[in-house]
């Protein structure tokens, strides 16, 4: 016996960025949480239209950077002053002055790792499959169509009401996508 397929969410297609943006504002104002907008290119003002706050990736970058800086300082102190002290030109065995450039490089490197890792983590990537990818019309998102997708797991989701909302927002084509 095959299981009855669970709905993943409702997909609404739009023809232009202006309609998509207005639809996004209406979905935002209804208080939906689990939804997204897909466009062929970045649309200015979409973040505000979706009510999105500043990305949290910056915190991962910051923590990565601080970790990198400390790692650099500790590594140089351990190698040049503690484990195998090397006197150079009568200078102190350890000084933050000469250890700064490599530590700074590690700040940038680990900061970049933090950004990349944080971005993947927050986007729940990598993932091998996404329910939207089996929808024929959705492939047009990389060409000239715009989509608003509201997930069925959102507490405000109701198949009829959500469909009505997106219809009244001006969507020409709406369908339910299954898991």
């Amino acid at each position: 016996m095959a299981e009855t397929p669970k709905p993943y969410g409702i997909v609404a297609e739009f023809d232009n960025p202006a309609d998509t943006m207005h639809a996004a504002e209406r979905v935002r104002d209804k208080g939906f949480r689990k939804w997204d907008v897909f466009t062929p290119y970045p649309v200015h003002g979409m973040d505000q239209a979706m009510g999105m706050k500043n990305s949290k990736v910056g915190w991962f970058t910051f923590i990565g950077g601080v970790t990198g800086y400390i790692t650099g300082m500790l590594m140089i102190w351990f190698m040049n002053a503690f484990d195998y002290a090397i006197p150079v030109g009568g200078k102190p065995m350890f000084s933050p002055i000469y250890a700064f450039p490599p530590s700074y490089e590690l700040t940038i490197l680990f900061g970049a790792f933090g950004s990349l890792g944080g971005m993947l983590f927050l986007n729940r990537l990598p993932r091998l499959h996404h329910p939207l990818l089996k929808n024929r019309r959705f492939t047009q998102v990389t060409h000239d169509k715009f989509f608003v997708v509201i997930e069925a797991s959102d507490p405000n989701y109701s198949e009829t009401e959500t469909r009505n909302l997106l219809e009244s927002a001006g969507s020409k084509h709406i369908e339910v996508v299954e898991e």
Binding site: G89, G90, K91, I97, Y98, F100, P101
Partner: peptide, 12 residues
């Protein structure tokens, strides 16, 4: 400013 200080510190 760090670059200025660093080069002078290193060359001594």
């Amino acid at each position: 400013h760090f670059s200025q200080y660093f080069l002078i510190w290193n060359a001594a």
